[in-house]
Nucleic acid binder design. Structure first.
Lengths: 304, 304
DNA sequence: GTGAAAGCGCTAACAT
DNA sequence: ATGTTAGCGCTTTCAC
């Protein structure tokens, strides 16, 4: 009818608008999408939104995408490669204009074969997919130095599965480098992100028996750090006197619920901002940097 | 070509499948949606996913919707009625098959006028929209009794804006009833969900000066309870000796990051499950109960 | 300046 | 049993 061409009497305009309201008309976005081959939809694939870090990240992404006129289709991969693949296929099938991925799974070929604009957060995908990450190496370095400078000598670093290609591995590299430079022996211990809390607790208890002389822990995320803290307290350790703990992530929720935890803060807002602008550039067809490293900060609690 | 009709030689089938793979073919869901007038999309409108309770709730909803064959379009309303309205319109325009709403805003007419299947969580919308809620009255009762039985007399109950029609108001009702039955004077204090942490902190500090004799607090959510705890500690209170605190929500994250907080646990999984099955019934056109109240549990920490 | 028609990719009904 | 066509609701192009 009228939407685009600019003539028409006011009376007609009003009439049509009234009709639109009374008939409760909403333009059918699906039909427009089909014709335009543009959905203004962005897919988000992350492990789960039930986590302080990913929850905040997704919230920040969603906010910025909304402001840029995109709606968000969400897929929680739950660390399940199959679910991730299903999501990916369905999102592609849904003709999303782009994808922001932070899931922690192994390689999935669809990311490579489809020529959909994709941005990865804290995950290496392939050569032409841009990655946004916090300065993991610096974070690992700061954390380890924090522990060493406050007197810890037997420091363990927890981390996810090593076969996963993620920039987060650089945290452990930095830890090992710093330990070596102080002539200390590095020890790493696996606490898989996908385990449930019970399994994590067991693994952490096992860590305490395996390393009885342990006096410092660099946990690769704050939830793990909290579990370590609780286990330590239960075993009679005093924090930070007997055991010093540094976490990683420093999301909003952690800083309110457990401000006592010293942790490395990932600049979530900035990462989200960069991810969105990078994705939009890609959608437009512009070139973007392939790697963007965002500086971290230290949150000083009382656990170190 | 072939997808539906069941004859064809195996060779042809293989050939087509190969072609599909080599051409990287994915059926266009948008076209199918246009024809079928069914998108297999469900919209979720919640304040924000950057919150332990809503994060977990959205994750649980998403999981169950995925299993039922639906994808999820998410909208974080951020307690902004305008944003909620925009989302609602866009989701309707996107032809979602249904909506699950837990946003905390005032009435929005579109919910009534469109005849889209809608389910509300912890929010009263209108007469024919089914509501899923935890047993807020029982939760308020349990919380208040917990505080009274451990010796508190001057108990304050924090809550959101009163003009909001939400079943959560029943927590305060129960609090008032229990207080009255013990001949204690009820006091309520507003801590708006939409305030940022800084503003909340200020409000809570003001509460401490307003009620110097306060020895018990029933906070309407765990984040607020944590802020109360911190403020109390800063002011020299000893928890639970000088001040007893009970929260509300008891989500996964809170129970890991702050297990010491005694709180009323909302059965998030069950609520999500009910919301999804109810929505699917509505989509099918079946009748559903208009109100489903799910029992709460007590998480015993050390704050009471 | 305004009306008519084609086509986005799919599915279902209709011919062959 | 297989090929053909109409149409979902929109936008754009092309006539008038």
């Amino acid at each position: 009818m009228l939407n685009n061409r600019g003539y028409l009497s006011e009376k007609t305009i009003k009439k049509v608008h009234d009709a639109m309201e009374s008939l409760n008309y909403q333009p059918n976005a699906v039909a427009r999408q089909l014709y335009k081959k543009e959905t203004k939809l962005v897919g988000l694939i992350f492990p789960t939104v039930d986590n302080p870090f990913f929850g905040q990240l997704v919230a920040e992404l969603e906010k910025r995408l909304f402001d840029a006129g995109f709606k968000v289709l969400i897929g929680n991969s739950m660390n399940d490669p199959e679910k991730e693949e299903t999501y990916l296929k369905e999102l592609i099938s849904n003709q999303v204009d782009g994808l922001i991925v932070g899931a922690q799974n192994k390689d999935i070929s669809e990311y490579h074969t489809s020529n959909l604009p994709v941005v990865a957060i804290d995950r290496v995908m392939n050569e032409d997919i841009p990655v946004i990450a916090s300065d993991n190496y610096m974070g690992g370095k700061l954390a380890t130095e924090l522990l060493i400078n406050s007197g810890a000598k037997h420091i363990i670093s927890t981390h996810g599965p090593i076969n996963l290609k993620t920039p987060a591995n650089r945290r452990v590299e930095a830890y090992a480098d710093v330990m070596a430079s102080y002539n200390l022996v590095p020890h790493t211990y696996i606490v898989d992100f996908s385990w449930d809390f019970e399994k994590k607790r067991q693994a952490i208890e096992a860590m305490f028996s395996k390393y009885p002389e342990m006096d410092g822990i660099f946990a690769t995320n704050d939830m793990d750090a909290a579990l370590v803290w609780q286990t330590a307290t239960k075993l009679g350790y005093n924090i930070p006197d007997d055991l010093k703990i540094v976490g990683y992530d420093g999301s909003n929720i952690t800083r309110v619920l457990l401000p006592e935890l010293t942790t490395i803060v990932q600049p979530v807002e900035l990462m989200a901002e960069r991810a969105v602008t990078t994705l939009i550039s890609r959608i437009k067809g512009d070139d973007t940097p392939l790697e963007q490293i965002i500086p971290v900060k230290v949150w000083r609690g009382e656990s170190v």
